[in-house]
Design a protein around this nucleic acid. Structure first.
Lengths: 254, 254
DNA sequence: TTTGTTATTGTAATAATTACTATATCATAA
DNA sequence: TTATGATATAGTAATTATTACAATAACAAA
């Protein structure tokens, strides 16, 4: 909406008073998920500055207004902060807005600050490294983060990361999100492992196979086969993600 | 996110320079849906001030920082602006965040402004009236708004309202949202009419009945019966909304 | 009492899902 | 070369869910 729908007239120029009282800090945060070592993990940093010094937090920071003629987009800010704080860059397949967190007390400092949160998803990613304002960056198992008491995470990041986890789990059912956790070519078993790992359930291999193959646009046959594993067994066909973004009927959680 | 995750140290005090360059205007907008005269409608205002003077827009405005010790929440701002611009207050059953729109060019004025958009839903509401900054407030049929060319709506409100419509349509399937369009006690036919109106489809009455009654927590029998209608027929039982917020299996769109 | 109308229940045909079995295809060990 | 073990993939019968449609219930009004 517009700046002045609740003000008598047009906006005064930048730097003048009056309207400045309406401005707030706008940050972005990103919950980047992947599967590592067979477990569902989320990227977090250990804060190197106050407030919440040494607390775990999601990567993020303020949107910059000095990039481009009118500042950067929130998505650009999320990717920039991710890179600055963890060293991770692109190479992941999905970024979507989760929601905006605007409680007036979410930041203990004097100034009001809201945050636009994002969910990112990628296949096994390179190792993160600490960066600006972060003494450490690391993938943490989601189950451990969920068990944390709320006070162990900076700001309202416990709330954000819980929402992000719920979003990821829910979207597996009715979208092709699971393929974003996989490398460009993957087997149906690998895809099933994504579901099983994130949901914490086990799925019938035969029925799963039929379901995902029946879902139009979910998988595309590459014509290749996976190398046979060390443990033996018939080599699986390799697929790539198809064009569909939603699947019906959904893959259900048993 | 914290204010300073991308800055060297703690935040300077209010009014000092340096950090001010990061602040932006934060607005809220609300797409309030209802069913009137058998059609799916959305509340819009005609702008009484530039920019986009005389364009249709969603009700909304800037978050105020001078309400309460730390300013109002985004939800509070949405309800306040709704009341100021349209006269409508409470009496509607559902408010949820849609998403935040932050394109640097979404507002043509010099200052950067983002908007947190909300979706509201209510049963047939009292008539809106124009208010501050709005020369007119009116419920418009959703099908007409969808047909508008993008340039007929202020700012990026065409984009927002399209997302809001899609959200409402999608959530009918797997949530109990439809009951929010109904008065406190309603018949299954009224509920079915909500689906049919919003989806623009027709549903089998018998099968619909069985589905919604089978969905645990969707409907609660009041023990009452509706008055028999002018057109005759067996009087329907009256239900109220149950405690469930999601339904499975979903109600499908045929 | 009959007719019209809508609500609600019932039912048979069809479709989808599940649990389970069978077969295919590979590596490796006998 | 031939078993054996392992995993992928295909098949199948029982079950369950869904659909299309018919039947009945409950009212108003002619």
């Amino acid at each position: 909406m517009g700046i002045d729908q609740n003000t008598p007239a047009a906006l005064p120029n930048k730097g003048e008073t009056g309207m400045e009282q309406h401005k707030v800090f706008v940050a972005v945060d990103i919950a980047l998920f992947t599967i590592r070592e067979g477990t569902f993990q989320v990227l977090m940093i250990k804060r190197g500055i106050p407030p919440f010094l040494d607390f775990w937090a999601l990567p993020g920071g303020l949107i910059r207004m000095d990039i481009g003629p009118r500042g950067e987009t929130p998505e650009e800010a999320a990717l920039r902060e991710l890179k600055e704080e963890t060293g991770l860059t692109a190479g992941f397949g999905h970024l979507e807005q989760l929601g905006t967190y605007g409680d007036p007390h979410r930041d203990p400092r004097e100034e009001r600050a809201i945050s636009i949160a994002y969910v990112g998803i990628g296949p096994e990613l390179s190792d993160p490294s600490g960066g600006s304002d972060a003494s450490l960056a690391s993938f943490l198992p989601v189950v451990e983060v969920e068990e944390e008491s709320i006070g162990q995470l900076a700001f309202d990041h416990y709330l954000i990361v819980k929402d992000a986890i719920a979003r990821a789990r829910a979207k597996l059912e009715y979208t092709t999100l699971a393929t974003k956790f996989c490398s460009p070519a993957f087997t149906i078993s690998e895809l099933r492992a994504v579901y099983e790992t994130i949901w914490g359930t086990s799925l019938d291999p035969g029925n799963f196979q039929k379901k995902v193959l029946a879902a139009d646009g979910f998988l595309e046959d590459t014509g290749e086969k996976a190398e046979s594993s060390a443990t033996g067994g018939r080599p699986a066909k390799l697929y790539r993600a198809g064009a569909a973004s939603s699947i019906s009927p959904p893959i259900r959680r048993n």
